[in-house]
């Protein structure tokens, strides 16, 4: 495993030509609440296509705040967010968000929920429903199109949330603790599906998590944030063999060492 604070490692499945510039870049992000609380203090990061980056840190480190600033849902006090080299000030079709609490509309069917992003864009009904069906099948929910969220389990609801984000075909997928509200078995299955998705699509994934194991298991790169004020304390690149089965990976010494290492780094913030 290697550590660096500036260098960007090659993504797991880097192929052919690598674009010179990162897909998403944040520069000197500062977020203050009032005059006292500093949630983020000068965070600069770059995210590249095909790469899954985890934002990891104890509660209060501003990881969700950073994600929401990238999404354009929050305005930073200072600093800027660039997507493909262009400064963005709000949400855009280039980024899609997956919510911790799923944020599904309880009055709408799975189909309509998944198609909602396209509905807002004004895509014709037939077309958006066709796209939605494709993505519903893709996340393994074929046959559930006409169900309502309350008829689904937590894991299935989050799949709906993921399908909705995929349906708008954004380049960047922002996920805010996507697995924290689902049970452990579902979470593991979900993590594997996410890795598969990552291999299939050259999208930029930015995932907020508080689980060290999850971050190490999923990520090409882990950004460790320290709390109050939120700063990048370390960037970890887990060099884990990806060929094995999930069980083999979780028993791999490198995996275990990386988890331990990160825990040692984070420990002082918890105590």
């Amino acid at each position: 495993m290697s550590k660096s604070s500036a260098a960007m490692p090659l993504p797991r499945n880097h192929v052919e030509v690598e674009p010179a510039e990162p897909v998403v870049e944040v520069r000197g992000i500062v977020k203050r609440y009032g005059t006292q609380v500093v949630a983020l203090d000068g965070v600069s990061l770059a995210f590249r296509a095909g790469e899954l980056t985890s934002l990891l840190g104890p509660s209060g480190c501003g990881k969700t705040t950073l994600l929401k600033i990238i999404a354009g849902l929050m305005q930073p006090t200072a600093g800027e967010v660039l997507v493909r080299g262009r400064i963005v000030a709000g949400p855009g079709p280039d980024r899609a968000f997956v919510f911790q609490d799923f944020a599904l509309m309880p009055w709408a069917t799975v189909l309509r929920n998944v198609a909602f992003g396209l509905e807002l864009k004004g895509v014709a009904r037939d077309q958006r429903e066709e796209t939605a069906r494709r993505h519903i099948a893709r996340v393994g929910l074929a046959g559930f199109e006409d169900r309502y969220p309350h008829q689904l389990s937590g894991g299935m609801r989050q799949r709906v949330g993921l399908a909705r984000a995929l349906a708008v075909d954004a380049e960047v997928l922002l996920m805010d603790e996507p697995f924290s509200a689902v049970d452990e078995q579902t979470r593991r299955k979900f993590q594997e599906d996410l890795l598969a998705l990552c291999r299939e699509e050259r999208k930029t994934f930015i995932v907020v998590t508080h689980s060290i194991e999850e971050a190490v298991y999923l990520s090409d790169r882990i950004v460790l944030l320290s709390p109050r004020p939120g700063r990048v304390s370390e960037i970890v690149v887990p060099e884990i063999p990806r060929q094995g089965t999930p069980d083999e990976i979780r028993r791999d010494p490198v995996y275990i060492d990386t988890v331990e290492d990160i825990w040692r780094g984070l420990r002082r913030y918890v105590e």
Binding site: L73, A96, K121
Partner: peptide
């Protein structure tokens, strides 16, 4: 209304 629903709409460009 859950704030995340409003954020969701906002994030999809509503």
């Amino acid at each position: 209304v859950p704030p995340s629903l409003v954020e969701m709409a906002h994030s999809f460009g509503a």
